[in-house]
């Protein structure tokens, strides 16, 4: 579903992503890990086709993604850590706007359906910006699911959420994986990755230092946290993530 080959991106003298190769398949949660500044967000922007790689290719569902490739973006639903919402829109209006943008048929029914999927059915008329962070995160997930994409790319979807919020988002993510979607999940919350991901890729200074099943690497090092520290040398990062 996602195939990345030799992906590189340089900003001035800094090599943000350096010959990255990775592969993630349908029906799995792929945890994408790395310390701050490792190149995760840059990689995600190239997967989304909003940043042009200097070298390498990204293929999603067999289609090569190029910057500005609108058809390629129809295969992806994306959510970031912060939900960028319109201050004047209710949740229903917000999703309705994106449903029309994606050309979703029977937009009103699909909006209701997606709101129900993420547990926001009773919030359709609430102003989106007035929701708690956890509910905004769910609204972001609803937006990402509107056009029924085979790939979900989630960048820090549980960051800053309370335990209830984390559980609710996790349930949605696992349910979507079980429906056969590929969930590409970037997160600092290692305990969450350990719990939900099927496979992981660990990136350090723009290079992939590990790719494989999460269970294997966690067992080998005692825990995912120990594996992360061993591979990235970022204990402070882990401490920050754990808190």
């Amino acid at each position: 579903m996602i195939e990345v080959e030799g992906l590189s991106k340089r900003f001035g003298s800094r090599l943000a992503v350096d010959g990255l190769n990775l592969e993630a398949s349908a029906g799995e949660i792929y945890g994408f890990l790395g310390p701050n500044g490792a190149g995760k967000t840059t990689t995600i922007r190239m997967l989304l086709g909003i940043l042009e790689p200097d070298q390498g290719t990204v293929r999603i569902c067999g289609e090569t993604v190029r910057r500005g490739d609108r058809a390629g973006r129809m295969l992806i639903g994306a959510v970031s850590e912060i939900q960028y919402l319109y201050g004047d829109m209710s949740c229903g209006e917000y999703l309705g706007f994106f449903a029309r943008l994606y050309g979703v048929a029977a937009a009103a029914a699909r909006v209701s359906e997606t709101l129900a999927t993420v547990g926001l059915a009773d919030r359709a008329d609430d102003r989106a910006v007035a929701l708690s962070k956890g509910l905004q995160q769910k609204l972001g997930l609803a937006r990402a699911l509107l056009h029924d994409p085979p790939v979900l790319i989630l960048d820090e979807p549980v960051s800053g959420l309370d335990p209830h919020g984390i559980r609710e988002v996790r349930e949605v993510i696992c349910r979507e994986r079980d429906k056969g979607r590929l969930v590409f999940l970037s997160s600092h919350v290692l305990s969450e990755i350990e719990r939900t991901a099927d496979r992981i890729g660990i990136i350090r200074q723009g290079k992939l230092v590990y790719e494989g099943p999460v269970a294997g690497v966690a067992a080998e090092h005692g825990s995912l946290e120990e594996a992360f520290v061993a591979m990235t040398g970022e204990r402070a990062e882990v401490a920050e993530a754990v808190t």
Binding site: L48, I50, G68, R70, A71, R73, M74, I76, A78, S80, I82, Y84, L85, Y86, G87, F98, L101, Y102, G103, R143, H147
Partner: peptide, 13 residues
């Protein structure tokens, strides 16, 4: 406010 990037995650160019 960041809504520009969210639009470009979709079919907007």
């Amino acid at each position: 406010i960041g809504t520009l990037e969210v639009l470009f995650w979709g079919p907007v160019d």
